[in-house]
Design a protein around this nucleic acid. Structure first.
Lengths: 250, 250
DNA sequence: TGTCAAATTAATGTCAGACAATTAGAAACC
DNA sequence: GGTTTCTAATTGTCTGACATTAATTTGACA
């Protein structure tokens, strides 16, 4: 646990990196207690605030947790799937929104990955998963729904589809792809007709999984991708045109 | 940008959450400068060290970057694909290693996702991607290679396969699945025979992509999954047995 | 002697104020 | 006009102190 040679970065970043390496490499194991802040300060020959900044960096990545009191301190944290989900989703969402990733690219990735779930989900989905999917289909068909609520339900539907694989690693990896699309989807104004189309395709997917028919699920997802892309392209084209006009008036 | 109602957590965590929300919601846009630390301290009615801890939390997630000097400060960071990769890989690796995810589960997820890349990669791979894959195959066939170097080359091969899709979102999402498997793969001792088998399958995948034959690529990847699983199961069974013995002697 | 309450202690959380280091831009000088 | 120097703004770091929290020990009392 010694400081890295690069002196250009912050001390707190160096210390955080050193401790992170120790955790990743297995030198520090889950639930192991780190030395108290004062001791760390001494070891790294820095002040306590600097150590604290380093620890906060690690806490932000859920690598450690801290506890107050006599037997408190910083402990190596067993990162939970929930924490990992949430981090992955935040990062994915920002990555997409900040880097001008096209609707096409994001959509393609999302459906390619979802289709990878279809065979596993067809084989393993529980009655619970099916029930969730049916419930979301039903919700999506209700007339009073806002576009945002419709999108949220859409995400819930797809999450159930992914969870149907019974593979938590799949759920984790897909979380980013599915959830990060939501802001892009939220740009779309769903007409009654397009909603009907989507619900029909969702129902088709659900039916296929109920019948444990991977091929049919794949087909329905392809259709859904095609249709989503169609909806998205309209919106994106309009936005691009309005941006163009704005630039022209400058 | 005001503090959330929950008072149970750290002030620095609350402030970090408030600023993060402002970034995610778009209130703060890319490259926008945050108020200086003293001002933030005043706004949130906390001290500067507390603000700094909050900013370090955000910096750890690449949400902001800081700059010293007269026109310095904290700026909303456009998170790059590289930064996102690296975070995703760290999280994925720890998630797998700390939560006793079985080799089977991880392997299944990885190959399910990689197979999702096959059709796209067959359609779009460049000559560069093929060259990288061939080069890695060649490296893997060299006799003096350590197991770790073999694994590293394996990862490089699969990364090229994924990058062949030409879809950066796919590359990002897959990075976690591919790289996080490496520690698990590193447990395996590759015999000359198993290496030969793997290189043959890698070559088969490469040939399929060169021929733009998605079906053949899928078949080869299935074979590779089957074989990897076979190798992994042996190792994991042995490890489980030795753990069992350890527990029995307690 | 057993039980409950109070004191102790060790740790993190927060604060205040100071100084160092860095950097952009303004001012001064040639 | 171009170059150098100065200045100001901002983050980085340190010191020392106090507040808060929670486990442990101590001690009083039944």
């Amino acid at each position: 646990m010694k400081t890295s040679p690069k002196t250009s970065t912050d001390l707190s970043a160096q210390i955080a990196a050193a401790i992170r390496d120790a955790i990743v490499s297995g030198d520090l194991i889950v639930n192991q207690r780190l030395p108290c802040e004062a001791e760390l300060a001494e070891q790294f020959t820095v002040s306590r605030p600097t150590v604290r900044e380093a620890l906060k960096r690690l806490a932000a990545q859920s690598l450690i947790r801290t506890q107050r009191g006599a037997t408190g301190g910083a402990f190596v944290n067993r990162i939970s799937f929930e924490e990992a989900y949430s981090q992955h989703i935040t990062t994915s969402t920002l990555l997409l929104s900040m880097n001008a990733v096209s609707f096409e690219t994001a959509c393609e990735a999302r459906y390619a990955l979802e289709r990878a779930c279809a065979p596993l989900s067809a084989a393993r989905r529980s009655a619970d998963h099916l029930a969730t999917m049916r419930a979301e289909c039903h919700r999506q068909a209700q007339p009073g729904l806002t576009d945002e609520a419709f999108c949220a339900s859409d995400v819930a539907f797809h999450r159930a589809l992914v969870d149907g694989t019974g593979n938590p690693v799949m759920s984790y990896q897909l979380a980013g792809a599915v959830e990060a699309m939501q802001p892009l989807m939220n740009m779309i104004t769903f007409t009654a007709r397009s909603r009907g189309e989507i619900v029909a395709l969702h129902t088709q997917v659900t039916d296929a999984l109920e019948a444990r028919d991977a091929g049919a699920a794949d087909t329905a997802l392809c259709e859904l991708e095609r249709y989503t892309l169609h909806l998205g392209r309209d919106v994106m084209a309009k936005r691009a045109k309005s941006r163009e006009n704005l630039t022209a008036t400058h």
